[in-house]
Nucleic acid binder design. Structure first.
Lengths: 264, 264
DNA sequence: TGAATGAATAATGTATTCAAAGTAGTCCCC
DNA sequence: GGGGACTACTTTGAATACATTATTCATTCA
């Protein structure tokens, strides 16, 4: 039988004393996309703050936690380094990138100018159906937003952020669809490589988002590219400020530093 | 090639008595950066058109050509796929991305909005020294540009594109330096992942570039962020059109032998 | 006492091996 | 003669093995 991959992690008795990496249950592990799976896992750890800024990433330990070899781990780290979430230093391994609040704000500003281009194009090209879709999403967005500020059932309220998140995503997606392929490609990357989605709608600032979206929608419906661009840019600038502030309060930027510096 | 800016060669100044020993840079193959070497090699092949659009990339053959194993090859392909130069299909391998002229134009437009942001910031923040540097580079640019149109020594003229290329790079670099880190990071990526630098100054359109640069310079010197942004955007839009046209004439977009393709 | 040196240890980068999925080509059946 | 299924070969993705470099830690010398 030789080397069976499943016999590598038979030592279940060995409680992971040093495992910094949460357990991972492979939903359905397909060959050929293992690296992508690792990317998603590590990105989640970084964006949620489980792995701290500057913290070293141990390839072997990570591989053991996910029960994969170092090959896909390595590929994943390369991907994340290209996203700017991981710093890769030759012969010295990988560490979580040290992002500052300014980086987050800058990132959103970039997001803004690119999404602004998409919005301008949408103002020029979006057809009646698209605008109708946009209106529908926005109406629902406004509705759910009012629910939360109207002191609704708290049990219900816990779901609100996720719903808003989804609606927000839909709103932007409709706009972005009228942009050319390369622009959409860049927007996807910019969206994924920042701890955006996790916190944007956790607090009350979605009220501002509603107003911003309204302005964007109006400009697009009016066929006003320049107005749409400006509205989208300022929307994301404000989002960036809010996100950075939120991340500060969550200690996202606290440095986890290198080895043996856990205390204090 | 020579472009190995060594990531972030920052704070090396910490005391270090040993720092007086000269650095030894092995011209031979350094371990630890093989992947990067492969990236540069393959990117060159793609951007110069040696590898055609859609052409399949054979990992093993590539590894034999470079005398490395498939591990660094694989990492390199992941990097290139994130740059959008290579298409990676699970279980089916890698192929040169199928870029269209529209993609190139779109890419330059993106470059434009991001570089436009940098230019706007430069108009706000660039100090007198920076503006002086910018003027100096531009003057030299203009001078060399006149040389070529003034029917200079043809032997000399063959060097002109490279010089213009360098001056162009310097011009933009000065501007970009006043942008925050994340913006510079994105600009670097946008610059590298397109067959820009190889052809931009091969023909006479540098005359247009001179005018554009002049407009950008004026706006920055005047402290006019919006004007600088617009000038930079239209500069890169024009550059994109020119680059796409040039690439068409060079057959860059001709489809090579891929899976179920070509076969005249 | 403290820095420098060198061995021991750990982790990284690269090569190699192995299993599974893809591809091509042939043969058989209709 | 054409189409589908089967087999043999190729190539990929992942695991393991190996070589080299970083790091740690104890020891020595100033």
């Amino acid at each position: 039988m030789g080397s069976n991959p499943s016999q590598q992690a038979d030592d279940r008795g060995t409680v992971e004393r040093r495992s910094r990496y949460p357990e991972y249950s492979p939903s359905s592990r397909r060959r050929g996309v293992l690296g992508q799976e690792v990317v998603d896992y590590v990105r989640e750890l970084i964006l949620t703050g489980t792995l701290r800024s500057g913290e070293k990433i141990d390839q072997q330990a990570l591989g053991e936690a996910l029960e994969v070899s170092r090959s896909p781990i390595r590929e994943a780290l390369v991907v994340l380094s290209r996203e700017g979430l991981v710093e890769l230093i030759p012969r010295r391994g990988a560490a979580v990138a040290r992002l500052s609040p300014e980086d987050i704000i800058d990132h959103y500003a970039l997001f803004g100018v690119v999404a602004g281009r998409a919005a301008a194009l949408a103002a020029e090209n979006l057809d009646a159906d698209g605008i109708a879709d946009l209106r529908a999403v926005h109406a629902r967005f406004l509705e759910v937003g009012d629910t939360v500020s109207g002191g609704a059932d708290p049990e219900d309220a816990s779901l609100v952020p996720a719903v808003l998140q989804q609606l927000n995503h839909d709103f932007h997606r409709i706009i972005n669809l009228s942009a050319p392929g390369r622009t959409r490609w860049l927007l996807r990357h910019l969206e994924h490589s920042v701890p955006t989605s996790y916190y944007e709608f956790a607090n009350g600032w979605n009220r501002a988002a509603v107003d911003h979206h309204a302005a964007i929608l109006d400009a697009i419906a009016d066929g006003d590219p320049e107005g749409a661009r400006r509205a989208m840019e300022s929307h994301l600038l404000a989002s960036g400020e809010a996100a950075a502030a939120e991340l500060v309060t969550r200690g996202f930027f606290d440095v986890g530093a290198g080895p043996e510096e856990g205390a204090v």
